[in-house]
């Protein structure tokens, strides 16, 4: 993934600040990476390299950790993060159908970010609200007992323009590009 102008400097200063708060110790690797992601929303390569240099371990060892845990992302998240719970109770009450509905509407697959970086879609193992299944986390807020018909409502609430009823499927592609000054470059997929 190519960085945008000014992004590299932003990454360097954020990681530098994070590293000041921690001991340069291998045991601090997870907390450091969590803090970096907390600041930047994901783990850019340049950030992982800086962390590796600071804790004095091979870069690939940081990459191993960054790619092992679900929580770490290697690409920037969307402005709106949608996480569909795929725990047992949610699965039984149609979590997969909810996931399908989001995938269809956002025209991305689970784990991806829309081209305009407005939405990212993820699965979470269980958020522990099983009695309210199926649940969806919309920007960390829990939406309880989501029915397939609620999916459009959630997206409309977040400013997504949905295809008009009459629209033919092939017209839909353009709708997802909500004008923003951010570049519309390819957002790499997370895991």
């Amino acid at each position: 993934m190519e960085l945008m102008e000014g992004e590299l400097e932003q990454i360097q200063s954020a990681v530098g600040e994070v590293l000041e708060k921690f001991d340069a110790d291998r045991e601090q690797l997870l907390p450091i990476l969590q803090a970096v992601q907390g600041r930047l929303g994901y783990l850019p390569r340049e950030a992982m390299k800086m962390v590796a240099a600071a804790v004095e371990i091979p870069e690939v060892d940081v990459y191993s950790v960054g790619t092992f845990y679900n929580q770490f992302r290697l690409s920037p998240p969307g402005k709106n993060q949608i996480k569909v719970c795929m725990g047992t109770a949610c699965h039984m009450t149609g979590g997969n159908i909810i996931m399908d509905s989001f995938e269809r509407r956002l025209e991305i697959e689970e784990g991806e970010t829309t081209k305009d970086r407005e939405f990212s879609l993820e699965r979470v193992a269980c958020v522990g609200c099983c009695a309210l299944a199926p649940v969806v986390l919309v920007n960390e807020e829990v939406e309880a007992k989501v029915r397939p018909t609620r999916v459009d409502g959630i997206l409309l609430g977040l400013g997504k323009e949905l295809p008009k009823k009459e629209a033919r499927p092939e017209d839909k592609a353009q709708d997802s590009a909500v004008p923003r000054d951010v570049s519309t470059q390819e957002a790499g997929d997370a895991r």
Partner: peptide, 21 residues
């Protein structure tokens, strides 16, 4: 933790605290 079910396993949990996968 950083999201890995296998970290419920004692030895994996320890590896995780030590900064490893």
């Amino acid at each position: 933790g950083s999201g890995a079910f296998v970290c419920g396993e004692e030895t994996a949990l320890i590896a995780s605290i030590e900064g490893k996968p």
